[in-house]
Design a protein around this nucleic acid. Sequence first.
RNA 1: GGCGGAGUAGCCAAGUGGUAAGGCGCGGGUUUGCAAAACCUGUAUUCGAGAGUUCGAUUCUCUCCUCCGCCUCCA
Length: 455
Amino acid sequence: MRLFDTEKREVTSLEPVDGKTYRFYCCGPTVYGPAHIGNFRTFVMQDILRRALEIGGLRTKHVRNITDVDDKTIRDSVAAGETLENFTAKWRDLFHEDCEALNCLPPHLEPSAVKHVPEQIAMIEELIEKGHAYPSDDGSVYFKISSYADYGKLSRLDTRELDLGKTQNERANNADEYDKDNAADFVLWKGRRDEDGENFWESPWGEGRPGWHLECSAMIRKYLGETFDLHSGGVDLVFPHHENEIAQSKCSCGGEFAKHWFHVTHLRVDGAKMSKSKGNLYTLSDLAEKGHSAMEVRYVLLSGHYRKPLNFTLDSLHAAQEALAKLAKASRGKVPPTYKKLLRTSDFGVFTSAWEKLNEDLNTAGALGEVFGNVKNAQSEQDWQGFFAILAALGLDLPEAESVEVPAEIAELAQKRWEAKQAKDWAASDALRDELTAKGWTIKDASDGYEVVPN
RNA sequence: GGCGGAGUAGCCAAGUGGUAAGGCGCGGGUUUGCAAAACCUGUAUUCGAGAGUUCGAUUCUCUCCUCCGCCUCCA
């Protein structure tokens, strides 16, 4: 597997640090509401990376956190009159349901931020000890970026001019809240504030709560160690989140931290960024209401290369539905092997080119093209094994032949219409067909029978 | 303003220094009493605009236009 590395700015080969198990970390969701399909573009691409590695023969260790304490979770749980725990549990469960519907393999470990407060406090103490962090008067602790020379390497901060003047101007109203040495220093521990309600933890610096950036560093250290294979998230996390993680982790425990960085470009909707105000923010349930399955959504999300903007439209969901049906038809009668049986697939038959596409910077769109281009040539057992291995890597389940419950009334009308047709009574036959159409059902005739399906 | 990314047929979207995958849609055909479904088939002399390098550029360089992301807690 070769993949573009955000830090090295080139496609590099992925080899596990320990030679056996590919260990990677993904920044998970902040659970304060339903995740939208833009969030899921990232999670689906991470899932495909994992599947491709596993089918390619590697073992993986996939860690993805749940952010269940931050400004938004606290704000919204207080507003809802619920405990933080109950509030976030609800959204976490929905997230899991959505992931399952999208066929995303659950991570091997899914640590939560609130359950790792001691680890975070320990890391802060270490950073203060080593001179990389300092407490402020309001009970907060900040990371001192001037103490880390490599700060900004990932996002090429050295070549950018931060418009700090403007930022400070805009934040003038909040200036008192923060007591930092440098405007760019970021918070490791936030002193307790009124709006936090009962959501606080004891610490050497008083009551408060951990900062957002720190949780990932602390959990990575605990579950993956000081050096691991790959770190991943949406592009928006490159700066400052991942930059800050690097600083925290390298300054506290040394090590190389992540060998590679994998970032997924944002999804666009109708050519624009998704936002509530534009009314173009979709969740899986929004789309389900419009009659689109999660698998169709997954298909759309992987129909473009992860480093390019992907323009989501409702039209593309329809295209996905048709495309999936086409593949299902092409492979009718073939029984897909279980995912486990497809691990370590070495021969992809006529789908070798698709596998190669996938392994060259996770070119899912190119791989799909190869699948369609070769499916007509698939004949041998090996070919079909390859077919299902590619689909498994993409995480696509093909729709089964639908067995829709046909109401007795509809079935009766359809039967009458078939009989009229057999009797060559075209007028009666067509009238019955129109009636069925009006009731929302379509007849598909074959030479020896018919089928009724919902419109 | 700084940094990064993108502009390929009606829509979605791969790709390449050597003459444009694939999906949807649409057109044509087979089939059908007519449709639908199914099957077969066609569908960009051209890759935002202009200039340059080259035997040759959509692919490299420059300029311009448009769009998007990040610039302190958004996947």
